[in-house]
């Protein structure tokens, strides 16, 4: 029942206070190790030279852009099905972080693409899917911003997030189809079992570091969002000080 215990925002804030310093420390250590390994331990690529090191940022960022959306989808289920009070906060605060990682994946992808393809942008199936994902993140963020009532906005965004989650595989599939129709085989293949351990280890450490970074940012953002909502409630109360906070009823039979 630990999950439900932390439904209470106050208890959640206490937990964050305890966990956050440790998580931040772990994240810093992981980044130090990951960056050291990717810049000094990992070998140069015999074809791409130093540019291959962009991969150690690009691949974890791309991985996080997907993970972030999955977390939003699960949180949306939490909002709609289990009515967990923190689920909506979690989904809302994950969106900008996800958008940032997606943007990072796109930028590093195109920087990497310049020496590889000779141009910053290629309508490669992967890049295109990630671009669509970025648009979805930005659309969700706009939806949250345009609605005043956080509860309503949360429910609306949850519906859209889930519709998007159902559609993402379809989008991925269609973009792949579209791409193979218009282009020969993909220019690069990073996945696959043949990846060399010298590359794999730095990549894994960086992925762990990025994941930790996500959780640090997400917890911080959730804390801020909870506090922001409290401020909003206090302001609403201040505004309606003359008004009743709640109404009770009295009744007597007529006649």
């Amino acid at each position: 029942m630990a999950f439900w215990d932390y439904a209470n925002p106050t208890r959640f804030l206490k937990l964050v206070q305890v966990v956050l310093p440790w998580l931040t420390g772990l994240c810093v250590v992981a980044f130090a190790a990951g960056l050291y390994m990717s810049f000094f331990v990992a070998p140069e690529d015999y074809q791409q030279g130093q540019t291959v090191r962009i991969m150690y940022i690009h691949v974890p960022a791309a991985w996080l852009s997907m993970m972030c959306y999955s977390i939003m989808a699960v949180s949306s289920l939490g909002t709609l099905v289990w009515k967990h009070p923190l689920a909506d906060v979690s989904a809302k605060t994950a969106a900008p972080i996800g958008a940032a990682f997606t943007f990072m994946a796109l930028v590093t992808g195109s920087l990497w693409g310049k020496p590889m393809w000779g141009t910053y942008w290629v309508w490669d199936a992967r890049l295109t899917s990630v671009l669509v994902l970025l648009i979805m993140y930005l659309g969700l963020m706009t939806l949250w911003r345009t609605m005043d009532d956080p509860i309503k906005a949360g429910k609306a965004a949850a519906v859209l997030t889930l519709a998007g989650a159902l559609n993402l595989p379809v989008i991925k599939f269609s973009v792949d189809w579209w791409n193979t129709l218009h282009q020969p085989a993909s220019v690069m293949r990073l996945d696959g079992p043949t990846i060399h351990p010298d590359i794999l280890w730095p990549l894994l450490v960086m992925a762990v570091a990025f994941t930790l970074l996500f959780f640090v940012l997400h917890l911080m953002a959730m804390r801020n969002e909870i506090l922001r909502r409290r401020v909003r409630t206090l302001r609403l109360r201040a505004a309606s000080a003359a008004h009743p906070r709640s109404a009770v009823a009295t009744a007597q039979p007529a006649e």
Binding site: V248, A249, T250
Partner: peptide
């Protein structure tokens, strides 16, 4: 008819009896 008169919460908390 029965009357139900809604008041602000500052008034005495009168629980509503069944009509």
């Amino acid at each position: 008819t029965l009357n139900l008169h809604l008041q602000t919460g500052d008034a005495a908390d009168l629980p509503l009896e069944d009509a």
